[in-house]
């Protein structure tokens, strides 16, 4: 049995202080988000309604340590249908920001930048549908340099940045160009053998 008093009642305040977390408490657990969600079809354990309820109860570790907070693809289908007007993908960004700040890392691949080869052309910044990439001033190998930087809390691993990069300086962990090429080759080889 869960003891409610052992939970962290300040967790909801922490979430609400985060950009995107403001409207958490409007939720009355109707479940429209869950019924609308496309991600849920792929991952049956993903339930945005339940996660919001857990946040309100103060189940801090369970929420932040769970892989499900990284699942939201920010399609915003739920936002369109939410009767309380809660921007749920924003809420999930808030959960992730807190998780990252605490040193937790996303379970899946996010985009990474090769800062040595990055020329700061900004194509990735323009292309990212989630505003997850920005250009920052940084010291790279002892030199002050402008480079792209990915916010893992916002990155949805779509790969648009990697595809648009002219210097092949940005790709997805586990889905780098090299790995993808290898996969393709194997597919093609397999097809030849079969033929």
């Amino acid at each position: 049995m869960q003891r409610l008093n052992q939970f962290d009642p300040t967790f909801k305040d922490e979430v609400m202080a985060e950009p995107g977390g403001e409207h958490l408490l409007r939720c009355y657990s109707c479940g429209t988000c869950m019924a609308t969600c496309l991600v849920r079809r792929q991952y049956p354990d993903y339930n945005p309604r339940r996660i919001m309820h857990m946040v309100m109860l103060g189940l801090r570790d369970e929420v932040l340590g769970s892989h499900v907070i990284w699942r939201c693809s920010a399609c915003d289908d739920c936002y369109e249908h939410c009767p309380q007007g809660i921007h749920i993908s924003d809420l999930f960004k808030a959960f992730r920001s807190i998780a990252l700040r605490e040193g937790r890392s996303p379970p899946g691949p996010t985009a990474r930048v090769n800062e040595r080869t990055c020329v700061a052309c900004g194509l990735c910044v323009e292309g990212c549908p989630y505003d997850a990439v920005e250009l920052v001033q940084k010291r790279v190998l002892g030199h002050e340099k402008t480079v792209a930087q990915v916010n893992a809390a916002l990155c949805m691993s779509c790969g648009v940045c990697a595809a648009s990069c002219r210097s092949a300086s940005i790709d997805l962990v586990d889905h780098s160009d090299a790995i993808l090429f290898e996969c393709m080759q194997q597919e093609l080889l397999g097809a030849e053998v079969a033929a």
Binding site: M1, R3, L4
Partner: peptide, 12 residues
Amino acid sequence: EDVGLGQVIELE
């Protein structure tokens, strides 16, 4: 039972 959580809870 917290129906939203799907679990039995206890509150002091």
